[in-house]
Design a protein around this nucleic acid. Structure first.
Lengths: 259, 259
DNA sequence: CGTGGATTTGAACGGCATCAAACTAAGTGG
DNA sequence: CCACTTAGTTTGATGCCGTTCAAATCCACG
């Protein structure tokens, strides 16, 4: 089922762990109904463990499954001609990984684990069967991808308009928000990704990211200790970021203005 | 039905024009089946004409319909604190406009016509009824938004990595491809958008866009005459762009590598 | 013919990339 | 336990590209 994709990846089949997983913390455009959850669980029989750095799929692989992060974190990326990784997105517990790839025959990107990561797999065939017996799931998928697209627009805005410090501020606020979604501290962050990966995501050089960390620390906005970052002044960071703090949480409507 | 949104917009109800429209040139993740087309046409009773510059909807308006471009071109955008427009996307004949907004209660962006534009409107309620009686349409919507998201990833890549000249080259190749989709010349482009709007899309200053035009012309890659641009050396432009020429045509699979 | 917006061109400044090197931390093997 | 290696991170110096400010030109339109 799950292929070993090299790079020291050890993918183990573990249905038992999967049965224990209620898929309850799927990131939600809306909550899944009990019926949806039941059907989804029934299909999500296959699970895997990815060691840090292990590849889940590579650009050019055929898309014959959908993956969900059950625990840990992954990145999706493409590698440019200089060998530099262009990071497309980070995915955390409860996220569908690159759901939009279902529109392709072959993956237009690669995916690798940032830390030890637990993955849930649903085959493409199962997914099709699922949506047939449970039409509302298709709507769920539409909403999921729509929210990803809205988040991508915000990222584009960040890439177009913001300075290095502002980009990093936005990114830290995004991670803070993600942490809170997972019932973790919104101020004490343990970054699962390297400076290089942050740079690849924010469109900056590694050195610039490092300097931005230093400047935010000088300004007393954060305290940096390797990959452990404490947000000391969230409002200050927000002022820095010049942008909605959460550009991927689907709350673009009503309460919070995008700008 | 269609509200007059000011800015000299003249929105006229014109069911006759709508009946004549077969919706056949909807941009397609896959072709619509005759059945789908029939049902869709039945609902798309309402049409409108937007003068150049007219607003279709504004950020904060409630999302109670979906719009399709029947002829012409529109932009979606947000306005930043300096009053500068950040262009999110351009939409042409056959495109759903900002379909992902259906995931919101209120529009997170505005939409305005670049030229005189003909619009087809389907109310949110009709859309829901449609997907109930035609489940495959929901899949169509999912695929549409997925392709938009894949395109948005490519745009992010452009914003992260490419120089001004490279960005403009990519943009011109994108327009060329769009033109070809509409059975127009792939080399003689009549840009519907201003330099300022191109700048807002590519994350550059107007002056930089203008200079990029000049440089590409000096290099004999294009011939510029106001908003009429002739692509003289497509391969040269492609080499310049360092990127897949078509970042929004859904051909990320099989044949064409993304990089 | 005059006005205002769009576009182009010029000049100077500044932020980020690049190159280079020091420093840290973790892992390896002697 | 320590020398050694390696990758990640930080800091410094320099140069370039794009922004900003300024002004000229062009064009549509009243």
């Amino acid at each position: 089922m799950l292929e070993n994709t090299g790079q020291g990846a050890v993918l183990t089949e573990s249905n038992r762990a999967c049965e224990a997983c209620a898929l309850k913390d799927l990131r939600l455009p809306r909550p899944l109904s009990p019926r949806e959850l039941e059907v989804l669980e029934q299909r999500a029989k296959s699970s895997a463990v990815l060691d840090e750095g292990a590849t889940l799929f590579s650009q050019g692989d055929s898309v014959n499954a959908v993956y969900i992060v059950r625990g840990g974190a992954v990145k999706t990326f493409v590698t440019d001609r200089n060998g530099k990784e262009d990071i497309i997105g980070f995915f955390f517990t409860g996220d569908f990984i690159a759901l939009e790839s279902l529109a392709c025959d072959l993956y237009p990107m690669s995916c690798a684990a940032l830390t030890k990561t637990y993955i849930c797999k649903i085959s493409r065939a199962d997914m099709q069967a699922l949506t047939r017996e449970l039409p509302s799931l298709e709507e769920y998928l539409f909403l999921s991808v729509s929210e990803e697209l809205l988040g991508s627009h915000q990222l584009s805005q960040i890439l177009r308009q913001l300075s290095a410090d502002e980009r990093l501020s936005s990114f830290l606020l995004f991670l803070s928000h993600t942490n809170e979604r997972h019932k973790l501290s919104g101020t004490d962050l343990a970054l699962p990704m390297s400076r290089r990966e942050i740079a690849g995501y924010l469109g900056l050089a590694v050195e610039t990211v490092s300097r931005a960390f230093s400047r935010l620390q000088e300004k007393q906005l954060i305290a940096v200790n390797d990959r452990n970052v404490t947000l000391l002044d969230i409002e200050g960071l927000r002022a820095q970021s010049h942008c909605c703090q959460s550009y991927r949480d689907g709350t673009f409507s009503s309460e919070k203005p995008v700008i």
